[in-house]
Amino acid sequence: MTINDIQDELIDEFSMFGDWMEKYEYIIQLGKELPLIKDEYKVDENLIRGCQAKVWLHADFQDGLIHFTADSDAIITKGLVSMVVRVLSGHTPDEIVHAELYFVDKVGLREHLSVTRSNGLLSMIKQMKVYALALKTKAS
């Protein structure tokens, strides 16, 4: 599936929810289900500091594809992180660099990308693109 296919799939899933309660229950569920990042990667070098919630991000590069694992100390952030990981992980550096993450807006979670939230999500997305750009540059 392409990055946009996965985004559309997420938008589809969220369209089933009647209100914010159901939406957040789902995000919290996603947060609880996110496969844990290996302890060896949950270190300060992989820490993205939001003002409020912390996010750890690790990138693995194999056979031309980047695989991300991540974690957060806040469960809602973790749920949001898991969605972004689902969308971007397993793609080529080039695809990730050029990805436009429209699903956040479409599922009604745009507020989580605002700077005042300081939940580390925005910084995490930037960091994912930085990894991808670095790997892309290295490859060419």
Binding site: M21, Y24, I28, Q52, A53, D73, A74, I75, I76, T77
Partner: peptide, 13 residues
């Protein structure tokens, strides 16, 4: 067991 940020987000809603 609960991060303050998560409580704040839900209260906001």
């Amino acid at each position: 067991g609960v991060h303050p940020y998560d409580v704040g987000v839900l209260l906001d809603k």
